[in-house]
Design a protein around this nucleic acid. Structure first.
Lengths: 234, 234
DNA sequence: TTAAGATAGTGACAATCATCACTTTAAAAA
DNA sequence: TTTTTAAAGTGATGATTGTCACTATCTTAA
């Protein structure tokens, strides 16, 4: 377990609190406590009362829903610096999905009542939170658009591009390297298709040299071949 | 055109400002101006700089995206009291979709810079806006789940249930009356299916007596037959 | 190093749903 | 009213993609 002294350091990794001075961060430290989670642990389940806000200091967390048949929808894979949930402040409610640790994690926890009080005193944090929530809304709307206006192979390519924004890095040759490995099953569960379709589509994309697999198994995406509007490559 | 005197009255129809006193609403009146729109007019297009926030006093507005082939995704149909957009505050950006008037509308416009200034001075409005954005996030996540975990006929039933929350009214017999007419094409464009499939599925639902059409063409949904988790009726 | 378990690739087949074509019905305009 | 236009219903067909079955490959633990 981390000692209380390290909390300011932990908090400063989180974008929401990053630019704060030691003085400003002090009241937040008061209300925050760190927790260690091992892989496969559940942080909360869908339907649990929404009483705490979490900030990931290290490790990875999967936010997902599942239906009665065990079919799974991965909403997001969160990592260092990410906050969750993104909704539910100032109204008693419940978590809307399950949160499961996928890689051992150190997570800073703040009771939501304290977090709300803090927000009321700090317009700067409100602004940041508004921005974060806006980004989330825009992201969700884009994902919905992908689901509704595009066919499966387009969805897969758009998923890779979207993941690349978070987990990828731009290379000197203009292509993007997606350096976090997801299994085909995970990719499938993000867009509601089957692992077989992911497998087949990815090998098509490789034949067309839009996607490459490097020696470490990372995706290399030739973004220059991908026109976001037209997808003339498909 | 409305005269300036009526703006407070107009503003009080909007949930965000509903509970304000005359005194509190005064500075908002200063920065707001009403505009009349006729059906089929575009309020803004996707990509336009996001510089104003709109509040619907009367009429209906369709928020939608479309792809190069003309295929349309209806994001929402907004009505009296609704605000749009729901995202993009405190960051220069663009509108993410088109906004088109579908029924002649009176809309109150506030320049976003003024709106942001107002928020900074009014924690009560911040709280309300946080709640509204949270609701939007939860709604979008649910719609994404519908798209990913459910088949088309389930999606259609869930769409009707979702629309019923906004446009429907509960009847004495426990069923829900959906009293805003959408065409099959519009319903199809909300979930990314074809009008033919909507037509066929609705008649199946009618055969199973889950959905009824009353004399005015409104849907009557037998919600007691619909278990949200199981959909054993399908 | 071997064995066990997970992940990936791929063919065959079936189910679902979009599309096309056409009819019917309803609504709006002349 | 009649005419015109839009919306809805429905069968036939084909494309897409999910599912099943099996093999191959890779990973991890014994």
């Amino acid at each position: 377990m981390c000692s209380t002294e390290t909390i300011p350091t932990l908090l400063k990794k989180v974008p929401l609190f990053k630019e704060l001075t030691d003085e400003e961060i002090e009241p937040i430290v008061e209300m925050a406590y760190p927790r260690q989670f091992r892989a496969r642990m559940l942080i909360f389940m869908k339907g649990d009362p929404l009483d705490r806000v979490f900030f990931i200091h290290s490790g990875k967390v999967k936010i997902y829903k599942s239906d009665i048949n065990g079919k799974e929808q991965i909403i997001s894979i969160l990592q260092e610096g990410d906050m969750f949930p993104h909704a539910g402040f100032f109204s008693t409610g419940n978590y809307q999905a399950h949160a499961e640790v996928v890689e051992d994690a150190t997570i800073i926890v703040i009771p939501i009542a304290n977090f709300e009080k803090l927000l009321l005193q700090r317009p700067d944090l409100c602004i940041k939170l508004f921005k974060m929530m806006s980004e989330r809304i825009v992201d969700l709307q884009n994902r919905l658009e992908e689901q509704i206006l595009h066919n499966t192979s387009e969805q897969i390519l758009m998923l890779l591009l979207r993941l690349a924004k978070t987990y990828g890095k731009n290379r000197a040759d203009g292509r993007i390297e997606l350096n976090t490995q997801f299994t085909n099953r995970e990719l499938a569960n993000m867009i509601g298709t089957s692992r077989e379709t992911i497998s087949r589509t990815l090998s098509q994309l490789r034949k067309k040299e839009i996607v490459e697999l490097n020696e470490n198994g990372y995706f290399i995406i030739a973004t220059d071949l991908v026109n976001e509007e037209l997808f003339y490559v498909l």
